[in-house]
Nucleic acid binder design. Structure first.
Lengths: 244, 244
DNA sequence: AAAGTTCTGTAGCAGAAGGCACGCTCGTGG
DNA sequence: CCACGAGCGTGCCTTCTGCTACAGAACTTT
């Protein structure tokens, strides 16, 4: 590709395309497609906690997360939230794709969990790419597949587990490599669709058992084995994407 | 499992293709594709309550429901079931497609809710069709989209509603045209992931309010408005596939 | 340093939900 | 005609969950 470095608009576009290298699917596009993308990509940055999409909104394109993390969640009539899933760098917002293809209104809320860079491909452009580019077709199917699995796993967990098990699972699966999970009990409550007090009571159990340590705004895993144990057997039988 | 039909194989195959007219997507296939399908389609009939797929099974192809209804459900460690969604005639089992494309093991159980005719397209055949036939690509994306919506709706309902609301919603959305729902309380409990007693108690409320009548093995809606009312406001704010 | 805000730890109470037990009704089949 | 089983109604008790309230700790702002 050409690399005019100083024109503000062009520079933005070029870096946009470059940034899409996270999506292997975009590497194999034909030159026409690349040009089309180059002309129409929109790069945006959402600060932490900024709303990205709201329920009922008409979706204007395909959202690809470049950096950061988006949270997709619902809000119950009583105001309680519940996280459906997260969208990490390199992933696409499938619900947006979904709405795009079926001409639907967006069925949930999306918020930036951390400061997030988003690449927006306008709807008509994406549809055009989908028609001619096998790579985009595969990306779409893969993205949908992924979300189907996440939703099924979440649904199964909601049905099969109590709050203690779900909390333990959340801690185990979202903790950083050093065993720390930087989040507040209030947020945990929201993710699990329950209240802060419930989380506090459960955390109390976990702390008493010595499995974790509770600090302000963070949880540290002290004993993974103990924690897994407190999570109960549900974790063993939990649905996994087992490769055959 | 296997087709109990005793007819010659050829006749079976021909009728299989005809039967696929339910899927408009198969009408536009090129002759090569039709021939490929014709050679490889497998028609099976599952009697009521027969297992079709079980968790962890390697998926052998794409499942299209011709007639009847399949139930996709999970089983919790404690043995409690919960219905994820149903597959009605003209629809494809998306999880199977999903597994097919991602080479995964099947993540749930599938059972014939009523005697069900299923067309099975072997995996390699489906993949080949997907590569060359835009109609199949669209069918796949549509099927995945549909399931994403159903799962999200289910998940949102689980989070936002209590059992009464979910029961009301189930009755309203699954009752036949004459306002009757032919099922037992035991089954209702399974679908909603709860127990028979809970259903009985809730039914008692509904009956007392005059919204429904309870017979052995069936429920009759007497007053739709009253029933909707008992379902609470959750139904109004429920996620719908609103066409813009 | 003082004031204000956010986060966490507790407690108590009310309602929802689940588990268990029992009795009843209806239909089927001997 | 009767026994039996499936389905339904109901009471009691326990556990889980949500809500309100309050106090102290930790961080931020002024």
């Amino acid at each position: 590709m050409r690399a005019p470095r100083q024109m503000p608009a062009d520079r933005n576009r070029v870096s946009s395309l470059d940034v899409l290298t996270r999506f292997e699917s975009f590497a194999s596009l034909c030159s026409d497609s690349r040009a089309l993308l180059s002309r129409n990509l929109v790069l945006t940055r959402s600060p932490r906690a900024a709303p990205v999409l709201h329920k009922g909104q008409a979706v204007s394109g395909a959202y690809l997360v470049i950096q950061g993390r988006l949270r997709v969640f619902t809000i119950a009539p009583n105001g309680a939230e519940a996280t459906l899933y997260f969208i990490d760098p390199g992933e696409a917002c499938v619900l947006a794709l979904n709405c795009l293809f079926n001409n639907l209104l967006y069925p949930a809320w999306v918020q930036a969990e951390t400061p997030t860079d988003i690449a927006l491909i306008p709807g008509p452009v994406y549809r055009k790419l989908f028609e001619s580019e096998p790579a985009i077709q595969n990306l779409t199917v893969q993205a949908l597949s992924t979300i189907v699995y996440r939703l099924m796993a979440e649904l199964e967990q909601v049905h099969a587990s109590n709050h203690r098990q779900r909390l333990v699972h959340f801690i185990l699966s979202h903790a950083a490599a050093d065993g720390t999970l930087r989040t507040t009990q209030q947020h945990l409550g929201r993710h699990l669709g329950t209240t802060r007090e419930v989380i506090a009571r459960l955390m109390q159990e976990l702390v008493r058992s010595g499995a974790v340590r509770s600090q302000r705004g963070a949880i540290t895993i002290l004993n993974v084995v103990e924690l897994r144990c407190l999570g109960g057997v549900a974790l063993d039988t939990e649905m996994r994407s087992v490769r055959r």
